[in-house]
Design a protein around this nucleic acid. Structure first.
Length: 279
DNA sequence: GACCAGGGTCATTAACCCTG
DNA sequence: CAGGGTTAATGACCCTGGTC
């Protein structure tokens, strides 16, 4: 049965089901959320299953976008409409959108860093002022240590590396004090009235932990050594020991003047300024 | 502190999608 | 085929977070 278009006086054909003439059908569809959703799904489907089409679309948009006259026109439109104000209003300071942007970039930049070590990486960067590249090496070393531990736990036998701490002991025994670490170690022995064995021992008495903290601080600051390296020099296999020495050492240094001056003495030795110490 | 990349805003462009 | 919607990238700008 023929009817009249809902939007104009146009007589409709006998098979018309929409109730709209050809001219107004598009407008009616555009106002129908269901139709729009269906249409949208169709476009997305095309893009999803036709990579060539998608690439075509992108290429075209790029081409148009990079045309100087189009760019100038868009800039003008944007400036005139002050559209950035809308963009900024939509994501105020501290908004979820901005945080999301921050998280996204963090995720991309820290993708190399195992999630459980990221806090430690940031601590090295911020509190310890370790340059990014160096902090990354330290974290990667730590990760490698953890992986090695895990490999051992499942029975995988690794090639043995020479023990750095053993090398240090050998140098002490032969009296060849070429290493700044050995000078600093000697200074720590004097400054804290302990023995080398005490420093290298497993004991956790405060009197023995202090020289380790002082040595760690000096190695970090003056030798730019990694925490793994510091730990190995002080007979520890895990670099987290060094991190703890550094953390606690800094705190104590701020509060305890006596400890601070002992650290300075060890630092002098490291830097070869042994004149004051020998006296 | 400077620099970079990403996220948010809307308009613009051409080609394609969908429906009857 | 008509007609509006959708897609892509891009423009300016600010803020966030990482890096130097």
């Amino acid at each position: 049965m023929a009817g009249i278009c809902k939007m104009c006086d146009q007589t409709l054909g006998r098979y018309n089901k929409s109730g709209y003439c050809r001219k107004h059908l598009g407008t009616a569809n555009a106002q129908n959320p269901e139709w729009r959703e269906k249409h949208r799904a169709g476009v997305l489907r095309k893009i999803k299953y036709d990579p060539e089409y998608k690439a075509q679309l992108a290429e075209r948009a790029r081409r148009i976008g990079s045309d100087p006259s189009t760019r100038a026109k868009r800039s003008e439109t944007f400036r005139k409409g002050r559209y950035w104000e809308l963009g900024n209003a939509a994501q105020e300071k501290g908004s979820d959108a901005r945080k999301r942007a921050g998280r996204s970039i963090r995720e991309r930049r820290l993708s190399w860093c195992p999630p459980h070590l990221r806090e430690e990486y940031m601590w090295l960067m911020r509190s310890q002022r370790v340059p990014a590249a160096e902090a990354r090496v330290m974290i990667e070393e730590q990760n490698e240590l953890e992986l090695a531990r895990w490999r051992r736990s499942i029975g995988y036998v690794e090639e043995q590396k020479p023990d750095l701490a053993d090398q240090v002991m050998a140098e002490i025994e032969t009296g060849e004090e070429r290493d700044p670490f050995l000078r600093a170690l000697s200074a720590a022995v004097i400054a804290f009235s302990v023995s080398v064995d005490d420093i290298f021992s497993e004991a956790r008495e405060v009197a023995l932990v202090r020289p380790r903290q002082a040595l760690a601080l000096v190695m970090r600051r003056h030798g730019k050594r990694t925490t793994s390296d510091i730990a190995a020099h002080l007979h520890r296999s895990d670099h987290t020991s060094a991190i703890n020495w550094l953390k606690r050492g800094e705190e104590i240094e701020r509060k305890d003047k006596e400890f601070a001056s002992a650290v300075a003495l060890v630092a002098d030795a490291w830097n070869h300024e042994v004149g004051s110490m020998a006296a």
